[in-house]
Every structure is written in C-alpha cells, then in structure tokens.
C-alpha cells in the first residue's frame, strides 16, 4: 500500500491522468447498473464532504465534528432557492456554499479560541441546533415534512435526470474542489493553516493572525460542505432534517480519520472504503455506524496516521519532495 503511494507521489502527473481516465471510463462500463452508479456517486459526494472536513480537522487542527450541520445548511439553502425562488443550479451551488461559510463564521467568531474537546462539543452542538432549527422553523423549512420537488439541474442546456448524468456532475464538482483545495493549501494561506495546527503560539509569533486564519479556514472548509449539500439536494430532489443527524457528521469524520487527515488523498480513500464496505456486506447495512466506529478504533491502534496518511508529510509538499531529490543528486 505504502509502495503504491510512493510511486504515485513520484509520477504525480501520470497518476492523476490515470485516475481521471478511470473515473471517466467507469460510468460507461456500469451505465446500465443504477445501483453501481449510485455507489460511485456516493463515493464522490462523500469525497467532497470528507475533503471539506479534512481542510478543517486535518490542516488547521480545529477538531470539528459537526460538519453535517453545514452540509444541512447547504442542502436546505439549495432546496429553498430552487423550489421557492426558482433559482437555477449554477447559482444555487455557490450560494449554498457561501451561506454555509457565513454560518461557520458566526460559529467561529465565538469559538475560535477553543481547542480539542471544547471546540468539538461546540461544533457538535451547532450541528444539532441547525437540525433542530430546521425541524422547528416550519414556515421556512416545512419542519419534519422536508422539502420535496427540487427540479433536475440543467447543465449547458441539458437537463440532468439520470444517475449517469449526476455522476459526471459530482465528478466535476469533486475535481474542482480538489483542485482549488490543492492550490490554496500549497500557498501562503495553506502554510499558515498548517503552522497553526503544528504550533499556534509559534504561528502567532511569526506574524500570522491566528484567530482570523482559523475562521478563514473554517469558512473555506465549510464552503465545500455547503456545495456538497446543494448537490445532494438536487440529487435526491428532496431534503429533510433526518439526513443530517450527528451520525452523518460522525460518518464524515470517520472517513477523514480512517483515510488519513492532513493529506488530500486520505479523505478520498476513506470515503471509498467506508462507502464500499457496508455495500459489500449487505447484511451489515444496519451496522454501518458500528463499522465506522470500529474502523476509527482499528485505525488508531494499527495505523494512527490513516490509510493514506503519513503521508501527511509527503503529500503536503509534493513539489518540494521532487526538488529535494534533485537537490540531493546535484
């Protein structure tokens, strides 16, 4: 496994190309099979969600376990915009992300100086408050009835109404999300976030306004959760508070932890494993969250940095790793 990651590290351009080809070919192979397509869509959707959480937990070290709350905000924003305001998919998508970001700023301003379990509990409580608000604010969200009848999205004049189409839509979203995250993480902003994770006091002493950057980080990460929420709303054409429980938040967290926090590949690997695993053992479907909990425990005992972690280091500075080899050779 590690050897595979080493190799992919070395030939990054090539391996990205290979992955892209695979991801583009797969849907044609399984085109007739809605069940498999649905799994593929789920993997990509959870990859975006896990990546969004990884930006926060893995890179800036803020222990957020309430990502489902932001996912929920994104989904409801899209649902309300689409059904009440007749807004199109392409506008709903960024707006959902921005609303999720904005709410994370509201949470972040009071909680920026908390760490560890204190922050964790606050994010958890926030996620529950979002869900309770959705349930109780009936005029706006229709409460427990949920919002049905979200139309199919239209892309470049084509209406997307099949799983085949949704697959390519979420593939595009995931690709953009990863691309943007990669570039931001490999800039001054990403370095500041990692510095905060490693040692907040030292980061402060190096001139990084840590409070502002932590909120910034939260807003950036939750933006993608909001975007994922928007996609989910269009995919299922119906949203209800039941889809955004704390368990959903734990599932996302579990993907990050098992896959490898602090690496871009990690959460995707985690999403793949944890979507596929319960599907492979259908009789275990009921045990989905038990499996997730056990996966966290096994990971911590066997490979605490996660499947693709450790990882952390090499993946943070892939360009540097290449230069380093050159440097050593000269």
């Amino acid at each position: 496994m590690i050897a595979i990651f080493r190799t992919t590290q070395r030939h990054r351009g090539l391996s990205i190309l290979a992955c892209a080809c695979l991801l583009l070919i797969v849907p044609f192979v399984i085109r007739g099979n809605d069940y498999l397509l649905r799994i593929a869509i789920n993997i990509l959707l959870y990859s975006v969600l896990a990546t969004s959480l990884n930006i926060i937990n893995g890179y800036s070290g803020q222990f957020n376990i309430g990502q489902a709350g932001f996912y929920c905000i994104g989904a409801y924003t899209a649902a309300i915009l689409a059904t009440r305001c007749g807004v199109g998919f392409w506008i709903a998508l960024p707006v959902s992300g921005l609303i999720a970001s904005a709410s994370s700023v509201l949470l972040g301003i009071p909680t920026a100086r908390l760490r560890g379990i204190f922050l964790a509990i606050c994010t958890l409580g926030f996620s529950e408050i979002v869900r309770l608000t959705v349930l109780n604010w009936i005029e706006f969200t229709r409460g427990p009835m949920g919002i049905p009848g979200i139309p199919f999205p239209t892309v470049l004049g084509y209406e997307i109404s099949t799983n085949f189409g949704f697959y390519f839509l979420i593939l595009a979203i995931a690709a953009v999300a990863l691309f943007v995250c990669f570039r931001v993480l490999n800039s001054r902003i990403g370095r500041a976030w990692i510095a905060i994770r490693e040692d907040e006091l030292a980061a402060k002493s190096m001139g990084i306004p840590t409070t502002r950057y932590k909120i910034y980080n939260l807003a950036f990460g939750t933006f993608w959760a909001g975007v994922a929420g928007c996609f989910y709303a269009y995919l299922s054409s119906y949203v209800s508070a039941d889809s955004f429980t704390l368990d959903e938040g734990f599932a996302i967290l579990c993907m990050v932890l098992v896959g490898g926090p602090g690496s871009l590949v990690g959460p995707i690997v985690g999403a793949f494993f944890l979507v596929v695993l319960p599907e492979m053992f259908r009789f275990l479907a009921e045990y989905r969250l038990v499996i997730f909990g056990l996966a966290i425990l096994v990971t911590m005992h066997v490979r605490p940095q996660g499947i693709a972690g450790g990882g952390v280091f090499a993946a943070l500075a892939p360009e540097a790793a290449g230069e380093g080899e050159k440097g050593a050779a000269s």
Binding site: I194, M206, G262, L316
Partner: peptide, 18 residues
C-alpha cells in the same frame, strides 16, 4: 517550537507571512 510536520524550508516560508 518548530512546525514539526513541515519541511525545513516551509518553516522558514511561514516566517515570510507578513
């Protein structure tokens, strides 16, 4: 108080933040 999981060079790069 170094940023232990960053490269040596990246540690210095953080210093250029301002």
């Amino acid at each position: 108080k170094l940023f232990r999981f960053m490269t040596v060079l990246d540690n210095v790069k953080v210093g250029f933040h301002t």
